[in-house]
């Protein structure tokens, strides 16, 4: 039998190991927290920015070029493109645009768009008040749609940033949404 003190050491170290296993999982929320603290806006599909009323005063003396990109994840069959590739906006002013999607398949499919902003420093200053990326999109076979996007560029946007690129990647989540135990996009 190990001595009492050996048993104590073993139990404590075992507890550390269990704790570190938990820490591995804690890294998942920590990752989001760290990104926020460090000012790296890691946009997730649920992000809906709170708009500061002061920022909503349009600054007509300054324009920022917004560029829109539409990407499809590997194997995604939908047509997906911005209806407008570029627009000049005034910080503080509300802007509207749309992205066009069409499902060419013969069956209904569900898609999820994931945004990304470049340069990353601009991300905290881009407020999306309405976005198709906030929820999954279901289209019947052959159906097409102009998906709305409404956003404001914050007045506090650093002066050196003149162009912001907003890129969306469209993922096919049909199997994931239908049967959660199915592997996404798994092809053998």
């Amino acid at each position: 039998m190990p001595t009492k003190s050996t048993r104590n050491i073993a139990l404590r170290l075992g507890a550390v190991a269990v704790g570190m296993f938990g820490f591995g999982f804690a890294l998942v929320p920590l990752y989001d927290v760290m990104c926020k603290v460090l000012g790296i806006s890691r946009e997730t599909i649920v992000t809906q920015s709170q708009l500061d009323p002061d920022a909503a005063q349009a600054d007509m003396s300054r324009t920022v070029t917004m560029q829109f990109l539409a990407n499809k994840n590997d194997g995604m069959a939908w047509e997906f493109r911005p209806s407008q590739f570029e627009m000049d906006v005034n910080p503080g002013a509300m802007n509207n645009t749309t992205f066009y999607v069409r499902n060419p398949a013969h069956r209904a499919m569900i898609a999820q768009a994931v945004p990304s902003v470049s340069p990353p420093e601009a991300a905290p200053f881009l407020h999306k008040t309405e976005c198709f990326c906030f929820r999954q999109q279901t289209l019947a076979g052959g159906e097409a749609l102009d998906m709305p996007l409404q956003f404001v560029v914050d007045q506090a946007l650093p002066k050196k940033i003149r162009t912001i690129t907003l890129s969306y990647t469209l993922f096919d989540v049909t199997t994931m949404a239908a049967a959660p135990d199915q592997r996404v996009g798994f092809r053998n």
Binding site: L13, V16, A17, G22, F23, G24, F25
Partner: peptide
């Protein structure tokens, strides 16, 4: 002891 459990966490995820 500090990092092998984190690896276990990664493969579990």
């Amino acid at each position: 002891i500090a990092v092998m459990p984190v690896l276990a966490g990664a493969v579990t995820m």
